[in-house]
């Protein structure tokens, strides 16, 4: 299976280069957990101010790849990353690179909403506070919540617990929390998978607004979602990047047979 895929993907993935500047650039990235290899030789260029969707069947390594962009795999025991990931012209896996500073600039939103068990306000101010934000915190809270389209719903109850919100609101709170750090890139790991359709719709609309300001990489198992929101789509299968290109192209005229089978719903 694996060898077959190698043949199929060939040089195809490298043949497509979106126009620079790039927010993130992965070069020959491999991720392994112990003896099992989750991501194999991925090369991927993510242009600034776009939404890039990573799609593929479960276990294809898309979440692992996403988590290697802000070194969250550091916390997984036995995880090993090789290759280079360039962010602002330097390799984030360089010995001199500081993962803490990196994560301050590359935000992340997780699969399940995970607000801190404190007030809404504190959820947002905590990150900027530990990173030495010197500005007006009240303004920061309001701006972030407005950008996450949550302000109108929570403006009167900033002191209440973030856990008291509904699932969709919690997820938007997590997005607001990430925005408050004013990152360059936001990574999203299936942000809507735990939400109902109307919350999902809200978040998708939000993404389209946010890309004016941030670069967004989103992992999703929902192909319709990828089509609706993303500018570029990367299809991964069994750890390899099979196809990468403009979203319309990937879905309407896929170059690889595997991609065609997947987007037409024949497997996965």
């Amino acid at each position: 299976m694996v060898t077959g895929n190698t043949n199929m993907s060939g040089n195809r993935q490298r043949s497509f280069d979106p126009s620079p500047p790039y927010a993130l650039e992965a070069r020959d990235v491999n991720v392994s957990y112990g003896t099992s290899r989750a991501v194999l030789d991925v090369n991927l260029k993510i242009p600034e101010h776009t939404i890039v969707a990573l799609i593929g069947p479960s276990g294809c390594g898309k979440s692992t790849l996403l988590r290697s962009f802000n070194r969250m795999n550091d916390f997984v025991r036995g995880a090993k990353v090789t290759g280079e990931i360039l962010f602002k012209d330097s390799n984030i896996y360089d010995k001199a690179a500081d993962p803490v500073l990196l994560r301050r600039q590359i935000g992340m939103v997780f699969q399940k909403p995970n607000p801190f068990p404190t007030s809404i306000r504190k959820n947002i101010t905590w990150g900027p506070k530990i990173n030495g934000y010197q500005g007006d915190y009240a303004a920061l809270v309001e701006t972030s919540l407005r950008r996450a389209a949550l302000w109108d719903e929570v403006s009167g109850k900033l002191g209440e617990s973030g856990l008291a919100l509904s699932g969709g609101q919690q997820q938007r709170l997590c997005i607001a929390r990430a925005i408050a750090m004013d990152p360059d890139v936001i990574l999203m790991d299936e942000p809507c998978s735990a939400l109902d359709p109307s919350s999902t719709l809200k978040i998708e609309n939000l993404l389209l607004e946010l890309k004016e300001r941030f670069t967004i990489v989103i992992v999703t198992h929902n192909m319709q979602q990828a089509r609706r929101v993303s500018d570029y789509t990367a299809f991964m299968y069994q750890g390899e990047l099979v196809e990468f290109g403009p979203t319309d192209g990937v879905f309407e005229t896929p170059q690889q047979e595997l991609t065609r089978d997947y987007v037409s719903g024949r497997f996965g």
Binding site: M72, V100, L102, G107, M108, N114, G127, M181
Partner: peptide, 22 residues
């Protein structure tokens, strides 16, 4: 929950900050 700690790390917090404040 692991997810809460990860949220802390993803905001650019150090281990110490996550441990003591989250």
């Amino acid at each position: 929950p692991r997810s809460i700690k990860e949220a802390g790390y993803a905001l650019g917090a150090t281990k110490c900050e996550v441990a003591l404040q989250v």
